[in-house]
Design a protein around this nucleic acid. Structure first.
Length: 258
DNA sequence: CATTACCTGCAA
DNA sequence: TTGCAGGTAATG
């Protein structure tokens, strides 16, 4: 589920909660935590990395020992892994759909996973010039481009639709037909939407929570995703929904130019 | 390129 | 019962 803003929030919150603590399972100290695309890397003493990708339904929670158990000492059935921390709390990976990924090993080994090796430039920090370069000579639809982590890292289905609505570009627009002014709008929209979502604590559509259990506030403020049949906030036309690049896509058929 | 598979829960 | 869900890798 989580996209760049949710993974960024998770990383920031984890830093305040567990940085400097030890993970008793490995008897290693937590030295640093960072986001790479939609993955979270926890750097441990001894050159090891504990990494997570939450995929569709995963969340990382910092809880007391007893929380998320059923009272008989058994874990909630959706807890994939529980790491004991030196402060008496647990770092828990909760993942209903089981698509999530956990890595553990030397930094060298973990980072040579294909996900990291092929990851594109981070969407949050990419400049206009690099977005122009990455788009250059690419073919296909813009939405598929945004969803492919090898182009820009971090954008997912909700952010892609929100960004394209903000930039007034139709999700099925062919990349090669984009004009400079539109690429610039895309870049500005990308920064705006991602930053706005981070500021609001990310999107909680159903599963995802901050490590402390709080919900994200962006989903309630979204512009277009999941608003099929409702009025476009810019032009009042009815929002359409269509399967594009294999995903449900929401857009305004009037003000997003094809 | 587009479609399928992975897996579980929930709403229509 | 069907369809759908913040993702990605594996297939045609």
């Amino acid at each position: 589920m989580p996209e760049l803003p949710e993974v960024e929030i998770t990383t920031r919150k984890l830093k305040t909660l567990i940085l400097g603590k030890r993970i008793l399972n490995f008897n290693r100290k937590i030295l640093n935590i960072e986001r790479k695309g939609k993955a979270i890397l926890i750097y441990l003493s001894g050159g090891k990395i504990l990494g997570f990708h939450q995929r569709m339904s995963g969340k990382l929670l910092v809880v007391g020992r007893a929380r998320l158990s059923d009272g008989q000492g058994r874990d909630d059935k959706h807890i994939r892994k529980r790491f004991k921390l030196s402060d008496g709390r647990d770092l828990v990976f909760h993942d209903v759909r089981k698509f999530g990924v956990i890595w553990y090993g030397t930094a060298k080994k973990v980072l040579k996973d294909n996900y990291f090796k092929t990851l594109g430039e981070d969407a949050l920090t990419a400049g206009l010039q690099s977005i122009k370069n990455i788009l250059l000579n690419r073919k296909g639809k813009i939405k598929a481009f945004l969803l492919n982590q090898k182009n820009l890292a971090g954008i997912g289905n909700i952010m892609a639709d929100e960004i394209l609505w903000k930039a007034k570009i139709h999700p099925e627009r062919e990349i090669k037909t984009l004009r400079y002014i539109e690429v610039k709008r895309l870049w500005k929209a990308l920064k705006f939407i991602l930053k706005k979502s981070i500021k609001l604590g990310g999107s909680t559509m159903r599963d995802w929570l901050h490590p402390g259990g709080e919900k994200g506030g962006y989903f309630k403020k979204r512009y277009v995703y999941g608003r099929e049949g409702q009025k476009c906030f810019r032009c009042r036309a009815k929002i359409s929904r269509k399967k594009i690049a294999g995903r449900s896509s929401y857009f305004c058929p009037r003000c997003q130019v094809l």
